[in-house]
């Protein structure tokens, strides 16, 4: 019997892995992928609660999160491309334009 708890714990594990990835990776592209992983973990929580409460509102929220993730990926990758064109790198340690 799979309980709500199992899904929430799995979601927590995935979210934490994504958070660790954002902190450890220095490649901007892989950092973006880790952020996508975190968004996906949250989606799993929404779906699990939606099933538990027998309410379809959670599915609509997941729909919105997917929209935002797609928009974020498009704009974020465009920013990375613009950065790469100027600095010839995607390593975030070498991108320090705002540093005083």
């Amino acid at each position: 019997m799979v309980t709500l708890n199992s899904y929430l714990t799995l979601s927590a594990v995935l979210f934490s892995i994504g958070a660790v990835g954002v902190f450890t990776q220095r490649n901007a592209l892989i950092m973006y992928m880790c952020i996508e992983l975190m968004l996906n973990a949250v989606n799993l929580t929404f779906i699990a609660f939606s099933r538990y409460l027998n309410d379809l509102g959670g599915h609509v929220f997941v729909f919105m999160i997917m929209t935002v993730a797609a928009a974020e990926a498009a704009v974020g990758l465009a920013i990375i491309m613009a950065l790469f064109r100027n600095k010839e790198t995607v390593n975030v340690d070498e991108i320090n334009l705002s540093k005083g």
């Binding site: 019997m1 309980t3 709500l4 708890n5 899904y7 929430l8 927590a12 979210f15 538990y52």
Partner: peptide
């Protein structure tokens, strides 16, 4: 997060 979920007993 897991510790905060210990009391959740949700049978789907």
């Amino acid at each position: 997060i897991a510790a905060s979920l210990v009391k959740v007993r949700g049978a789907l």
